[in-house]
Design a protein around this nucleic acid. Structure first.
Length: 766
DNA sequence: TGTCTCATTTTTTTT
DNA sequence: AAATGAGACA
């Protein structure tokens, strides 16, 4: 087999074995995708036909790339029949077909994070719980944890473990909330992301005929990134693979970084127990990075206890040492990184696309963005507001959703008064109540208000009815037209486009542009699907979009750009030059990890970050960082100490001030509202003993609001620093008055009218 | 009902 | 630094 010659010995062994269950432990950069693609190609040459292969990945992007590579090996006409996709998209596909078996219709909606949140908020309100204690975020997290562990509401109510964790958090009513949440989702003919997996397992468990149908259909099951699967996914894989157990999972326990989402590292560690005669293969040769980078990463991960020991090595050049540099402030850090990028580009002729900045939290991106833009360096930020996350796009999509699934109450909530129809919150509340009373979808109440909600005023009834009628008319159109024509009809009938067109503000023009972009994306979709002789219905589009992530967008753009993203988002990618920034205590590692186990996950996260680098790796930290409008002071991350010093060189941009190591007191939860603030000077002098906290500087949160006459503002402009920034609502002009330690933000709307005035104090001497 | 003003809060990572 | 929410008022 000629193409197998392109593999090394261990890769080839892994590809050629397919007698049964198989675990491939693939070190970073060891060609794991290559093995998977070649394995699939090999299976095809062995007579397994494409349609009988199921390959599950973590992201759409990974699926698409793998499919492309297989196309190169075996041709597109074969590759297109492989069942390749994310867990979620494969499940969504199966559930569409068998929706009735689990009590849904095939038009079910997939709720995204914001739908979940608003639903949970309503439940908390209806159950009359305190939203200070029952925070939507926490609740959603608990529900997701349960679903990831395949725990139903009933089982949740029985579970001592969940009950105990809830009582610690003082959220003892969780079982009721979970049950109610489940009920309302079902009532809305909707599922959240976790449901897609959970219901597929339920479907297969409860329906022997369907289960056997898939089990005999899938001859071979492959799973990528197995270290990031949760219990529900484990069950799912098992259900697909039984009874033959021709299953091949690939993963790296050292790169398991999604436990917060329910991933359990036990899946990969216990694979050989789960599949009795499973064979283990290891890929240990790293083809990506220099020896120094591999060694540095190894020395870091060596500090973790729970892991499959392996010996990842590189035979590339030794390469540069990892450069660790500390700065006084976060501003200096981003300034220096941007400057370094300029130098890399101009002096070492690095392409911008070869460079990435990786950080722990999305919030860190802003300062780098500012500095990089100042220097006119092209860049791209992943993970910010994605196109499909924009308000006007979500509104348009909410129309699609409601028309397709009239029970989708979250979509209705979004659009019933968008654009303005004079249907306010009070009316919607009444409608909701009437709907709950009658056991009807809210839209049904809108259709016949006199029957379900006679209390509404005549004028309101009319408005509500008109809305329902519009939706119903669109419903007819939806069935007649393709997605493109239908979208045009939606824009027109809903008044969305008219609303954007008459708005001449910069934001309005932007909104219109986005709506047009959506339309052209749908046009593209229709053309593509028709060329493939596939359906081009709006529901097909909706399906695809609701499972999209921000990393799946913007393929067209080929300008070389510096990449900025979180370390999580960088998993699976590689760059010649990588900056890992913000390596400080209380940031990286995150202040929220308390157990040693969580700390090990943070360490793995840094391992992932470092191993993204092919040739050069820079690590930076800042002694002072602005957080929530307040300065915070943190010691350099303990992880820097974990890396063997022989692979590190100290950066020299500022006087090296790595203090002799002090165990940074980790801010306990209860103290979070009073962040420790310590002046930089103190940090410099700190020796072995943890420094006391001399409060020579105090950050004053917010000055009392004071009227600020325009005259005063113009007076301040003279000689003061004035910054311009553009963000969501309007233009902000910040006026700093240094001597009085005050800063004023004046927010103007598009017409130059003053809309918001905030006064902040900077550091105040005591 | 909708807009404007002010006040409070903020736990990381994402399919 | 920014978003979200509550309350006042037109």
């Amino acid at each position: 087999m000629s193409f197998l010659d392109e593999l090394n010995e261990s890769q080839r062994a892994a590809v050629e074995y397919n007698d049964g269950a198989q675990l491939i432990v693939a070190g970073a950069g060891s060609g794991k995708t290559r093995v998977l693609t070649y394995k699939i190609a090999y299976l095809l040459t062995q007579g397994v036909s494409a349609g009988h292969i199921l390959a599950l990945t973590f992201t759409n992007k990974a699926a698409r790339e793998m499919k492309q590579r297989i196309c190169h090996l075996v041709g597109e006409d074969v590759a297109r029949y492989i069942w390749m996709g994310t867990f979620h998209s494969i499940c969504a596909r199966i559930l569409r077909k068998h929706a009735a078996a689990i009590g849904f219709t095939r038009d079910y909606t997939i709720y995204d994070a914001s739908d979940q949140k608003s639903l949970v908020k309503k439940i908390i309100k209806d159950l009359k719980l305190d939203d200070k204690i029952y925070k939507p975020g926490t609740i959603i997290d608990r529900i997701s944890t349960a679903k990831s562990a395949f725990v139903s509401p009933e089982e949740y109510a029985q579970s001592k473990q969940f009950a105990q964790a809830d009582s610690v958090m003082n959220i003892g009513r969780m079982p009721q909330i979970y049950a109610e949440y489940d009920k309302r989702l079902h009532g809305s003919n909707a599922m959240d992301f976790d449901d897609l997996l959970m219901y597929t397992v339920i479907l297969l468990q409860n329906n022997a005929d369907i289960r056997e149908q898939y089990q005999s259909w899938f001859w071979y099951v492959l799973v990528d990134e197995y270290q990031d699967t949760n219990r529900t996914q484990y069950l799912l894989v098992k259900l697909f693979a039984e009874p033959q157990n021709k299953v091949c999972v690939v993963g790296d326990d050292a790169q398991s970084i999604y436990s917060f989402r329910g991933a359990t590292i036990e899946n990969i560690l216990g694979f050989q127990q789960a599949y009795a005669d499973a064979r283990l293969f290891k890929l240990e040769r790293n083809y990506r990075s220099t020896q120094t980078i591999v060694n540095a990463a190894n020395s870091l991960i060596y500090k973790n206890k729970a892991q499959i020991r392996k010996n990842v090595y590189s035979e590339k050049e030794v390469g540069d040492k990892v450069r660790v540099t500390g700065y006084d402030t976060d501003r200096e850090e981003s300034h220096a990184v941007a400057q370094q990028i300029v130098m890399l580009h101009n002096l070492e002729h690095r392409n911008y696309e070869d460079i990435a900045i990786l950080y722990r939290t999305n919030a860190q991106s802003r300062s780098f963005e500012d500095e990089i833009r100042k220097r006119n360096i092209p860049y791209r930020i992943y993970g910010g507001l994605s196109f499909y996350g924009r308000k006007e796009i979500k509104d348009a999509i909410a129309y699609f959703r409601l028309v397709a699934n009239e029970r989708d109450n979250e979509a209705l909530d979004r659009i019933i008064n968008m654009p303005k129809r004079g249907i306010g919150d009070t009316t919607v509340d009444k409608l909701r109540e009437a709907a709950a009373m009658a056991g009807q979808p809210i839209l049904a109440v809108c259709r016949e208000p006199e029957r379900f909600a006679p209390l509404l005023q005549a004028g309101t009834r009319k408005k509500v009815q008109a809305f329902a009628q519009m939706i119903d008319e669109l419903h007819t159109l939806m069935q007649e037209k393709d997605a493109y024509e239908y979208t045009q009809a939606v824009y027109e009938r809903s008044g969305l486009m008219a609303d954007a067109v008459t708005d001449y503000s910069p934001e309005g023009i932007d909104r219109r542009g986005n709506l047009e972009e959506l339309l052209s994306a749908i046009h593209q979709f229709v053309t593509d699907r028709k060329a493939q002789d596939e359906d081009a219905h709006i529901n097909d589009f909706l399906n695809e979009v609701s499972l999209l992530t921000d990393q799946d967008e913007r393929l067209d753009d080929r300008t070389p750009r510096v990449t900025m993203m979180t370390v999580h988002a960088a998993k699976g990618l590689e760059f010649p030059v990588v900056f890992v920034v913000g390596l400080e205590e209380n940031l990286f590692p995150s202040p929220f990890c308390e157990t040693e186990k969580e700390m090990e996950e943070e360490r793995r996260l840094l391992y992932v970050a470092i191993t993204r680098a092919e040739q050069q790796c820079f690590i930076t930290y800042a002694n002072q960082r602005w957080k929530n409008g307040q300065p915070t002071f943190n010691a350099p991350s303990r992880f820097i100490r974990d890396i063997d010093p022989q692979y590190i060189t100290r950066g020299s941009s500022v006087p090296t001030m790595m203090p002799p190591w002090i165990e940074q007191p980790r801010t306990p939860r209860t103290m979070m509202s009073h962040p420790t603030t310590r002046p930089t000077e103190q940090l410099r002098q700190a020796t072995v003993t943890p420094p006391a906290r001399p409060a020579t500087l105090k950050a004053v949160k917010q000055l009392p609001k004071q009227p600020m006459p325009d005259a005063v503002i113009s007076e301040w402009k003279e000689g003061d620093r004035i910054a311009h920034k553009v963000f969501g609502k309007g233009t902000v002009k910040c006026v700093y008055k240094e001597n009085d330690n005050e800063k004023i933000d004046i927010v103007f709307d598009d017409k130059g009218k003053k809309t918001l005035l905030l006064t902040y104090a900077k550091l105040e001497r005591i």
